[in-house]
């Protein structure tokens, strides 16, 4: 193809992609046109053409920046927010339905209204822990970390949660902060809850994914997993473990010392190719890799093993 025709075609494609909102593709075509132009010597006004293309690229890059840096979701009207609650809450029972509605609001980036809704659910025993976790998630998404810690302190002071629930929430909150590299500490002022305890079996606990804000997508809250053993004394069997802690795609298990024979076959780096994940409202399959296998040296779980698994696919 004639060079001039080739350049013209590339520029036309660039314009088309831009008109379609395919901004990265548009930039790619402009750059390809500029590259060809630069390699051709005898072109009249080459510098002017190149400057023209550079201007186009800058303009498209500006559009792309505006897109990438714009708030993910502008505040919607109360009527639209109500509609989101109505259309995206599927549960039938009176407790979990409003929780799902609030989660939907958060997923659409309506954090202010979602926070109001979650706070109103703190008074409802069956969903209060789930509501609190989602309040934490909203603060994380909004990056209002200090406000979140202050709210957690209020829960601590109000006696809204049992010591175990509060510790569960503290571990959860701290885990998410640590994972995001935020150097803030969540503490419980009251005494008696300072020892780490296995998280109680989850109550209704629907969660808000973080992926809308561009973070790594989180898993649903997992209460337990079933691992198909590929090695060791239980080869071929599916062994179930309760999840003691979860932060995003990393889950921790507490394995009693009596399972030492099996633990030896779950060394760091072991790939677990067939895992069933059980969440309170869904079961799904995936794979993971053992990232840590530690014998607990102190405390009530001394002698048991703490196993961390990074979920690699679901």
């Amino acid at each position: 193809m004639n060079v001039a025709v080739k350049i013209k075609t590339l520029l036309q494609e660039a314009e088309l992609y831009r008109s379609q909102g395919l901004l990265k593709e548009s930039i790619g075509k402009y750059r390809a046109a500029a590259d060809i132009l630069q390699k051709v010597d005898k072109v009249k006004n080459r510098d002017a053409y190149l400057e023209g293309i550079a201007r186009k690229i800058r303009a498209v890059e500006k559009e792309l920046d505006a897109f990438l840096n714009a708030p993910a979701a502008p505040e919607m009207t109360a009527a639209v927010q109500d509609l989101i609650k109505e259309k995206f809450a599927f549960a039938k029972d009176a407790d979990s339905q409003p929780l799902e509605g609030a989660i939907a609001l958060a997923k659409f980036g309506q954090y202010g209204r979602a926070l109001e809704e979650f706070r109103s659910l703190l008074a409802k025993e069956p969903v209060k822990v789930a509501a609190a976790k989602n309040i934490i998630r909203c603060h994380i998404s909004r990056e209002s970390f200090d406000e979140g810690i202050e709210e957690f302190r209020q829960w601590d002071g109000d006696g809204l949660f049992s010591p175990q629930q509060l510790e569960n929430l503290r571990v959860f909150f701290q885990g998410v902060l640590d994972k995001r590299g935020i150097e803030k500490t969540v503490e419980i002022a009251q005494s008696g809850a300072e020892t780490f305890q296995e998280i109680e079996s989850p109550e209704l606990d629907l969660q808000l994914d973080q992926s809308d804000a561009g973070q790594e997508e989180e898993l649903l809250d997992i209460s337990s997993i079933g691992v198909l053993m590929e090695d060791g004394p239980q080869t071929g069997e599916r062994v179930e473990f309760d999840v003691s802690f979860q932060s995003g795609k990393e889950i921790s298990l507490l394995i009693p010392s009596r399972e030492k024979g099996m633990i030896e076959h779950l060394r760091v780096g072991t790939k677990l190719n067939d895992i069933e994940f059980y969440s309170p409202f869904a079961m799904f399959q995936g794979a993971g890799i053992v990232t840590s296998n530690t014998k607990i040296a102190t405390g009530p779980k001394r002698g048991d093993f703490s196993l961390d698994i990074k979920v690699t696919s679901t």
Binding site: A72, K107, Q210, D212, E217
Partner: peptide, 21 residues
């Protein structure tokens, strides 16, 4: 009811929610 999902990669969670049921 006819729905579209937001197709951009970053709206994965919203997309999943719309797909429910």
């Amino acid at each position: 009811s006819l729905y579209t999902v937001p197709g951009q990669v970053q709206y994965s969670s919203t997309r999943k929610l719309v797909l429910k049921e």
